[in-house]
Design a protein around this nucleic acid. Structure first.
Lengths: 228, 228
DNA sequence: ATGGCGAATATGTATAGACAATTAAAGAGG
DNA sequence: CCTCTTTAATTGTCTATACATATTCGCCAT
């Protein structure tokens, strides 16, 4: 067995009763004093357990009123957007990156104004195209990127190892491949593509804006949440 | 101003220094004793701040070694999969649900065996089709669903208000509409669709399995993370 | 009934101290 | 130079206590 800390044990036992439905949404959870007596420990210990549950959104806590099982609201899930290179390798395929264009320019886009490095390229899995990527990187925010060898390392991979982000936004959509996109990916025009548009900021300032167009038949995004 | 608790203030100040790049990934964060002296508070207080940062993945803590700024790994984002009805209404459109078939049956699917309620239907936004949904709900896990009026309330909405989940998985992909799907959605066969397949479990037992096919031009998924 | 007001109560925050667990680093021995 | 052992630094957990803060409840006056 494992010697789980007490606050962890308390947390898990309460969690189990909530998830099993023993304590229905809206039901009252025993107060800190009560649990403290029940487990024979200090209030700080049960407080830590209950605070963790509140942070996870499993319970609502209100002063004077008490602690209650939260009613499920939205399925907020963790979507792990890992590095594409890592993801491909994890699937047992070989990863490749083919940079096509790279130029420094001045962006006029309202969502990312100023000097940018613009990079286009194709991600390959086992030598065949997987996705086309068009990316802008703010050189004002990330001047070091100008010295990076983005022909050897995909920009996403490079950024992941060098720049932390504070805010990010992903938009996921589907579209039919344009003739130009189809040519680059080696598919037929009109074939469905999964498009991911990702913007990241650091402290309010835009860092990068990327469009990735995946060949629909070769890629899907998987988001998981919960116990392993 | 706000009267932020001390541990919150400490957390935010450290967080700011990490995100601004003042403290680079791998750099050492002052130890608890040092911060304790710096802020003139008890160790539990700085511990709470640092623990929160560790929980959020911003720092790594190792006994004897110290606390270090974590190097960014994967962009793990929170993808809010809200209820479709709510989402449509939030966009200022009217929401509608049109159930098409409903039958109790025995599922042979390995990922969801046993007795299930099978529901097909179309989600409407402003009266026009937005997505087709095919759903299985385990009646062993959720017997109450048999008495729910799923013609009036979309099954997703009903489930969200009645059943908590412990584990869930989303798969997001793109595909071309089959003739049958195109007919139901009122689009042309071959038009791109965004497909979301969601499975949820409660304590290891499957609760529901749903396929949602969105008309690509009318819907995209948005995932956000970070400060408002 | 109704609306305001005070008091009881549950949570939130913080302190000071103690011991346990982990493990990097220094030192001892070969 | 390498390996094993010891040491010590640092985080992890827990206690017992105290006061702060928000909010519900009931009392009281209207």
């Amino acid at each position: 067995m494992k010697a789980a800390p007490l606050h962890e044990r308390i947390r898990r036992e309460i969690e189990a009763r909530i998830l099993s439905g023993t304590w229905a949404p809206g039901a009252r959870v025993p107060g800190e004093i009560e649990l403290m007596a029940q487990y024979g420990c200090a209030r700080m210990t049960v407080n830590k357990a209950l605070s963790a549950l509140a942070h996870a959104g499993l319970v609502d806590r209100r002063r004077r009123a008490g602690t209650f099982v939260a009613r499920p609201r939205s399925q907020s899930m963790v979507l792990e957007i890992t590095d594409l290179a890592r993801e491909v390798v994890a699937r047992g395929q070989s990863y490749g990156w083919q940079m096509q264009t790279r130029r420094e320019t001045q962006s006029e886009l309202p969502e990312m104004p100023g000097p940018v490095l613009e990079v286009d390229g194709v991600h390959l899995a086992d030598g065949t195209p997987l996705a086309f990527e068009h990316r802008l990187i703010s050189t004002a925010q990330v001047p070091e990127v100008l010295t990076a060898d983005l022909a050897a390392t995909a920009p996403g991979t490079w950024l992941l190892g060098h720049v932390p982000w504070t805010e990010a936004e992903n938009r996921i959509s589907a579209s039919a491949a344009s003739p130009a996109l189809a040519r680059v990916l080696g598919i037929a025009a009109g074939d469905p593509c999964l498009t991911v548009t990702r913007r990241t900021w650091r402290g309010g300032a835009p860092v990068t804006l990327v469009h990735q167009h995946f060949i629909a038949s070769r890629h899907e995004l998987v988001a998981r949440f919960g116990a392993a």
